[in-house]
Design a protein around this nucleic acid. Structure first.
Lengths: 114, 114
DNA sequence: AAAGATTGACTAATCAATCTTT
DNA sequence: AAAGATTGATTAGTCAATCTTT
């Protein structure tokens, strides 16, 4: 999830995303994301800013250090996922795995009582 | 994993299995399983015994209390998994999901350097 | 030495309660 | 009140080191 957060931020405009949006795309709870983001912040990889438009939102921003750290980690991370997951399945199998996972996650999301 | 441990024990001869075997079927590390088993033991759901044949093994045994707890939890647990996973996919999709997961897990297992 | 298992320290995730802004 | 987020306490998982038995 830490990698996902850094990666999502790196491809976003201004390298910025709302924490609630990050929680949603990573399928993490808001509480988990808040703790996780704090750890990244302590390490200097991200920072927070209240949304100037709507103060309820908090914007997460990737720092230059965070971008460098992501860039350094990416090749190894991608290679690892490829060798452990992607290369083990056919293109068709991988597509079907993704579809099944999406179905299950959306079912869980809609049935949850918060 | 706690549920899996209780369920596996309940269908084993003498309601007994080696901890290393439990770790393998649940895809948990031996360390994780040891901690988890200790928690179940504190709750009185399982107990340990050294294997009389080979003292390196530890046998995990389901207690009567553990069996009752499992029996009480099973209907709800099964219904939940069914509604969140099984019922969301077709029989064919479910079979393919299982096969893909098995492939990935066995790849991870064989590439691991302990 | 190797296999099975355990331990303790550290890190991460969960859960419920709380706070802020709208 | 509702949405977004945070906090602190508890529980769980990880990692490396260690112990026991073969």
């Amino acid at each position: 999830v830490e990698y996902q957060v850094l990666a999502m931020l790196s491809t976003s405009p201004e390298r910025t995303m709302r924490l609630s949006a990050l929680a949603e795309v990573t399928n993490a709870s808001l509480s988990r994301l808040s703790h996780l983001f704090k750890r990244l912040e302590v390490r200097g990889l991200v920072r927070r800013e209240p949304d100037p438009v709507d103060g309820r939102f908090t914007n997460g921003i990737l720092t230059d250090d965070g971008f460098k750290t992501l860039a350094a980690a990416a090749p190894g991370h991608v290679a690892h996922v490829r060798s452990q997951v992607v290369d083990v399945l056919s293109a068709e199998q991988l597509r079907r795995l993704g579809m099944a996972a999406d179905r299950i996650m959306s079912r869980i999301d809609t049935s949850e009582i918060n």
